[in-house]
Design a protein around this nucleic acid. Sequence first.
DNA 1: TCGAATTCTCGTAGGGTATACGACAATTCA
DNA 2: TGAATTGTCGTATACCCTACGAGAATTCGA
Lengths: 255, 255
Amino acid sequence: MSERRSGEGQPDRTLALLWRNHRQPSADGPVRARGAGRRPSLNVDDVVQAGIGLADDHGLAAASMGGLAKELGVGTMTLYTYVPSKEELLDLMVDQVLGERRLPGPGEPRPADWREQVEIYSVETRAMFQRHLWLSQVSTVRPPVGPGMLAGREYLLSVLLGLGLTPVETNTAALAITTYVDSAAGLEAESLLVERTTGQSNDAWWYERNDLWETYFDVDRHPAMTTIWHANGYKSTAHDAYRYGLDRLLDGIQP
Amino acid sequence: MSERRSGEGQPDRTLALLWRNHRQPSADGPVRARGAGRRPSLNVDDVVQAGIGLADDHGLAAASMGGLAKELGVGTMTLYTYVPSKEELLDLMVDQVLGERRLPGPGEPRPADWREQVEIYSVETRAMFQRHLWLSQVSTVRPPVGPGMLAGREYLLSVLLGLGLTPVETNTAALAITTYVDSAAGLEAESLLVERTTGQSNDAWWYERNDLWETYFDVDRHPAMTTIWHANGYKSTAHDAYRYGLDRLLDGIQP
DNA sequence: TCGAATTCTCGTAGGGTATACGACAATTCA
DNA sequence: TGAATTGTCGTATACCCTACGAGAATTCGA
């Protein structure tokens, strides 16, 4: 009885949109064959940029088709001439910001040390999440296969190819690093996002739950937590844990 | 001009609900003082279990207040006498399934090797995500502070306390491990969920996007990906990367 | 035995979401 | 000067959460 939905209707159209600014010169037809018909008042980039702007400023929910149309001064349904669906629009927004990361391309200068090269990936990815907190709310299991996503994969693989691992090991290591970095950066962004949208800091949130320790917490059932608490062990932050884990991971990768 | 919303209205009521089956004997009033008034036709556990069941079988969207009410044979608004809001209900559902993990408590037998003890956490957490794929759609940055969540933290800290690290290091290591394991298990579940709800396997999804390689992919811009591809390096899976990363992390923690 | 107090039930209404359909407007070309 | 083409967008449908308030059921005190 499960719903049978097609997910994305037209992969070819979505690909064409994702790569709209990277047309291969080999394409036989001219870039744009304007003929008869009413002139469009917008273009795809307008819609994508407006979506990113609204999501940045007022949250992903504000980037609804209706809100977007109001922002652009057109009717809601007008957007559907530029973008097949909300889902595809989100793909375009995500690939756009993935492509904003300043990662050295093939032939461009980069640090000699491979760990510093990984650090570039880490810093740029985290900065991207900080600029666009809504990214943390978007699933990455079927990412947009556009120029932005491919540039990220290409860069990390190019870094690890210099280590002399086998091809399979290289790919495995790249997967492990992206998973770790992207997940941690996403969690950090999500935390900030929650603080912003609820108007309540995480500290205030915990303070509100003081009753937990006074009324419900059972020391006998939680001896380890109690020990860490009394030894002042809770000083470490999520960011400490991130650095620690990434360093361990890179230690293990280094041949 | 950002919305000022309180997030959760009554932390004390939410705590009481989360710990409803773990009342401390020190509470002065009797456990339940039934007096005047109409008798309830349900209880909180009924609602929570129905929510989990619907989300398991038909996805998190099916666990709407309306759908839940239909399932239980009551009016939608009736649910609000048991649960303050949808948000709190989700907290209750999450803490319930967190508590389903079979993690040895204080004093209960466990393997001698600490890495095997971490393995228990990994296996149980991954199994939990597999049973309840919708967990991957729920944010964990402000988790339910109930018995289920606390049991998980307690277990992992108790494992690492035996290693002789400093308290801060112990907490940092525990954070790194939970972040890594929970994120990876969540991604895996999300992948399955997408396959189920779209009715399309990930392989089929990639096959649909064959045009990427034929039409848009530029070998000169992606030499590393091309190299890995020709060397057959893409055989490694997300699960390989997970094991690899976790092992490296544990290597680094071991004193 | 009969209000009063208490607690549970739930219909309605309001404000949000995405998008299928179809009528209409604008533009170019034969 | 039609015909063909393409862009615009109002309306309608089917969901979502939950504030409000009227009514039903139950117990207790007098």
